[in-house]
């Protein structure tokens, strides 16, 4: 993962060649299978606390990351397994973190909601809604301060939009012209509150206009459409230091967290079933196979490879020891 995938001429008309298609499919599947296994492990008591699954939204993280360079940054909220994996973290160490083990990315001290990976420039894993948006602006500030051409992608949900920090962050990034891509994953529900119960303006991308930055809405279930939109925003950020706001229209197939497994109180079963017809992985697989970019055998090979990697990740997490007791008191401060 985390390779830069650019458009390449193909005869398929999809704008992706076999290598890119394989990567996009594999990355989305990796997140899907990772989380299915995480849900099983949660049921077995191997994962505790809150576990917020991203299932259904994989195209956003994968399409976005495929347009980034490895030295670009990404930051997210608490539904971030997919963003972290897409950015290139080792699934073994992510799973070990969920299991609360010493080989986890954060030594088992962070858990599902606090994944960080310095090696991939993944900056967390933030579980107070809205709080990481100003932090993303700070990273954009640092990039500009040093004269670099990196960008930071800041993923957040529709639930962060009514928070003051969304507006403070948008204002500051626009005011100071910083290379921040605000990527709103609008899955229509902040926990159980639908956007029309939370927002006076439910077309979130329109807030871009308020702050004088480019904004657009994109089908969050179409990995190729996301690549197009993100590609434009990243180019602007790199060359013009302009922030952008992208609203990805997506949907989570599972509940808010494992404690809301059905998610049926605030939305209908029919709605969930209808949205599952937009499954980004199924749609992309059909598209690339029917266009002849990948053969059925290619797609199966990708699936097999992903399944093997996830099995390895679970075995690794299971085998990793618990963090030693003395680690309770390490990393409170960085020792100079």
């Amino acid at each position: 993962m985390a390779k830069t995938l650019t458009r390449s001429g193909t005869s398929s008309g999809l704008g992706v060649d076999a290598a890119v298609a394989r990567q996009l499919l594999g990355d989305m599947l990796l997140i899907r299978r990772f989380e299915e296994k995480a849900a099983e492990a949660y049921a077995l008591g191997k994962i505790g606390g809150f576990l917020h699954l991203y299932i259904g939204e994989e195209a956003v993280a994968v399409g976005t990351t495929s347009m980034l360079r490895p030295d670009d940054y990404a930051i997210s909220a608490y539904r971030e397994h997919g963003h972290c994996l897409a950015k290139g973290s080792d699934p073994k160490r992510v799973m070990a973190e969920l299991f609360g083990r010493r080989d986890g990315l954060s030594k088992g001290k962070g858990g599902s909601m606090h994944l960080f990976d310095k090696g991939t420039n993944f900056l967390g894993g933030h579980a107070i809604v809205g709080a990481h948006l100003p932090i993303a602006v700070g990273v954009g500030f640092a990039i500009k301060y040093r004269g670099g051409d990196q960008v930071i992608v800041c993923y957040f949900g529709d639930g962060a939009v009514p928070e003051g920090e969304f507006h403070e962050a948008m204002n500051l990034a626009a005011l100071w012209k910083l290379p921040v891509l605000f990527l709103c994953e609008n899955n229509r529900y902040a926990m159980g509150t639908s956007t029309d119960r939370a927002l006076a303006q439910t077309e979130i991308w329109k807030f871009a206009e308020t702050y004088g930055v480019p904004g657009e809405r994109v089908d969050g279930m179409d990995v190729l459409a996301i690549r197009d939109a993100v590609g434009r925003a990243v180019a602007r950020a790199r060359t013009e230091k302009t922030p952008s706001l992208i609203e990805a229209d997506t949907y989570r197939f599972r509940g808010h967290s494992m404690r809301d497994p059905a998610g049926a109180v605030y939305r209908t079963r029919e709605e969930v079933e209808r949205e599952k017809l937009r499954d980004p992985i199924v749609l992309f697989r059909e598209k690339v196979v029917s266009a002849g970019v990948l053969s059925e055998a290619d797609a199966r090979a990708v699936e097999k490879d992903v399944n093997d990697r996830i099995d390895e990740a679970v075995a690794y997490a299971d085998a990793s020891p618990e963090p030693p007791g003395e680690w309770l008191f390490t990393d409170i401060y960085k020792e100079s």
């Binding site: 709080a131 100003p134 932090i135 700070g138 990273v139 500030f141 920090e165 403070e168 204002n171 500051l172």
Partner: peptide, 27 residues
Amino acid sequence: QRVVDTPIAESGFTGVGIGAAMVGLRP
């Protein structure tokens, strides 16, 4: 560039400082 006036947005500019510090600056 190094003495940055902000609007009145304490949470916003403190978060900016934190983000900048995470990637190596000293706000």
